[in-house]
């Protein structure tokens, strides 16, 4: 029940609804629980409701961190 993926808002609708794109699948969801979501934003959707906006800057920073782990390993020459 808790599995949910980040979805991109492609259209705002009436009554705090929006259409999102989930890897090619379109779905109408509710934005009633988030503040200031716009077309193009990514949101975490759970049982039909956006629970939070996805901070793309933070997402990139996390991915950079993963990549740096690999570099740190190369620096120390500690390759198993």
């Amino acid at each position: 029940m808790c599995l949910a993926l980040p979805a991109r808002i492609i259209e705002l609708r009436e009554n705090e609804s929006a259409v999102v794109d989930l890897g090619g699948v379109r779905k109408e969801i509710s934005l009633a629980l988030v503040v200031g979501a716009e077309v193009g934003d990514y949101v975490i959707v759970h049982a039909g409701y956006a629970l939070s906006k996805l901070d793309t800057g933070e997402a990139e920073a996390t991915l950079r961190l993963f990549a740096e782990l690999g570099e740190a390993r190369a620096d120390t020459g500690n390759v198993p």
Partner: peptide, 13 residues
Amino acid sequence: FSRAVTREGNRKA
């Protein structure tokens, strides 16, 4: 999970 979680969370919810 800083891309979706803050210390305060979703105040509206």
